[in-house]
Write a protein that binds this DNA or RNA. Structure first.
Length: 412
RNA sequence: GGGCGGAUACCCAAGUGGUCAACGGGAGCAGACUGUAAAUCUGUUGGCUAAGCCUGCGGAGGUUCAAAUCCUUCUCCGCCCA
């Protein structure tokens, strides 16, 4: 591959952890990275500005859901997903493969593709590998995913083998169908918890050749040790010079474990969904904000957190908002959880760079705080840069210009 | 003063002789959530020395093998008539 968009910057000496940079049509992302999930062209409750504030570098969208509503042609007419939702940074779309799994009772799988019955109105829809790529081309994400089958649990060996082989044939078809050079198409490795199948899946998917590889079909209900075992086996089989994406995982512990196995990219609904359901990740462990014990707790959600929510609001207030089902609760809690995940990733990158990752691996809270320190340093340097720029501008501009600017700011 | 209707668990409310510690909803309490059919879902909510026992459907008394349910009476609430 001559045009490798992924640059490996450093690999940890004690684990498989790596840091790198992935170039996309909408900018570079730093790996390991967490990608907030924005299924329907929105990370629920967050504006793009919110997302940038907390350090989001790339988000997810979903092919199946956007195809159903508003329809990929509408998004295309809008100028693509980025313009449609006013998000300037990179986007990755999932192919709809996960809906093959999650909408189990509503679909039928054939070699050709998958027939879905819309959960919205019961109407029938057919998505093939070619169709998924066509939709994803129209949506215009920077990274798009091959259409795969994510087999349910339990599935026997024969089914897993058959399914994995079909996913390979689909991967080939996706590659054939994909045209847009501005979009990187990633392949997906399947094979359930069967190592032999995972190995074949990796080899054959790599043989087809993609700029990045994902591990799918994990965290679908299996026991965690088995998931870790499968992950630890599969991730190191992937080509070192390509980005590795673990789909749909997971808890903060899962991410750190995945990184130690060599995973570079993650997405998961957990921080956003759990936030809306009142379950928060903090350096002191999980906080279920609805619990009565927080009724008169006037301390921050996480005393070690520098996010907007923790800097400004108390647990008692957040509990009140959540119990009352106020919209603001969902937003503030989502921002906190996402910030936690993103800080964790910053901390991990820093630790890998410093060579302390292996030592800090078990200390999620410590890694998260480390991430926040580097965030603070970044923000301060950005501020001082801006201040310097501002003072330079003042020297050149007339005083009336600057007071005009002030007045305009006051008016808004 | 008379007539009629009502009083059920934290709130609303169903039940009108045994299968009722009592349907359902709200609220409370707790838990779950992993490429989002998810601001969703699940469990639980009289007490206890807990596969059993005790208390309990406004209070008191009665009928019955058995009462939230039938009878008497009292209290309170609503409507109507004087």
């Amino acid at each position: 591959m001559t045009d490798n968009k992924f640059t490996l910057i450093h690999t940890d000496s004690q684990t498989q952890a790596r840091i790198g940079k992935l170039r996309t049509a909408h900018g570079v992302i730093n790996t390991p990275i967490f990608m907030p999930v924005g299924t329907r062209a929105t990370v629920k409750t967050c504006t793009p500005h919110d997302l940038v504030e907390i350090g989001t570098e790339i988000i997810l969208g979903n092919t199946y859901h956007l195809y159903l509503r508003p329809g990929h042609r509408i998004v295309e007419q809008a100028g693509g997903l980025h313009k449609f939702m006013a998000w300037k940074k990179p986007v990755l779309t999932d192919s709809g493969g996960f809906q093959v799994f999650s909408l189990g009772p509503l679909r039928t799988i054939t070699e050709d593709g998958v027939e879905f019955r819309s959960e919205i109105d019961g109407s029938k829809h057919f998505i093939s590998p070619e169709r998924s790529i066509e939709i994803q081309n129209a949506l215009g994400a920077d990274i798009i995913m091959a259409f795969d089958e994510c087999p349910p649990l339990p599935s026997d060996y024969d089914y897993l083998k058959q399914s994995m082989e079909m996913t390979l044939r689909w991967a080939e078809r996706c590659k054939q169908a994909h045209r847009n050079p501005n979009q990187q198409l990633f392949g997906i490795v399947q094979g359930g918890m069967e190592k032999s199948l995972r190995k074949i899946s990796v080899e054959k998917t790599v043989e087809i050749g993609f700029p990045g590889y994902a591990i799918g079909g994990l965290s679908v209900g299996e026991e965690k040790p088995l998931m870790y075992e499968t992950l630890a086996y599969t991730a190191p089989l992937l080509p070192k010079d390509s980005p590795h994406y673990l789909m749909g995982v997971g808890t903060p512990e899962d991410l750190v474990y995945g990184i130690s196995c060599g995973v570079d990219m993650f997405d998961c609904v957990m921080p956003t969904r759990n936030a809306r359901n009142g379950s928060l990740f903090t350096t002191l462990g999980t906080v279920k904000i609805r619990n009565a014990k927080y009724k008169a707790d006037f301390t921050p959600l996480d005393p070690n957190c520098i996010c907007h929510t923790c800097q400004n609001f108390t647990r008692a207030y957040l509990r009140h908002l959540h119990v009352e089902n106020e919209i603001l609760a969902h937003r503030l809690l989502t921002l906190h959880n996402l910030h936690f995940y993103l800080s964790l990733m910053r901390g991990v990158r820093q630790a890998i760079l410093e060579g302390t990752f292996a030592r800090l691996k078990e200390d999620i809270g410590g890694l998260m705080q480390r991430g926040q320190r580097s965030e603070q340093i970044e923000t301060e340097s950005a501020k001082s840069k801006a201040a310097k720029k501002d003072s330079r501008n003042k020297q050149h501009k007339s005083s009336t210009g600057s007071s005009n600017r002030k007045r305009r700011r006051a008016a808004t």
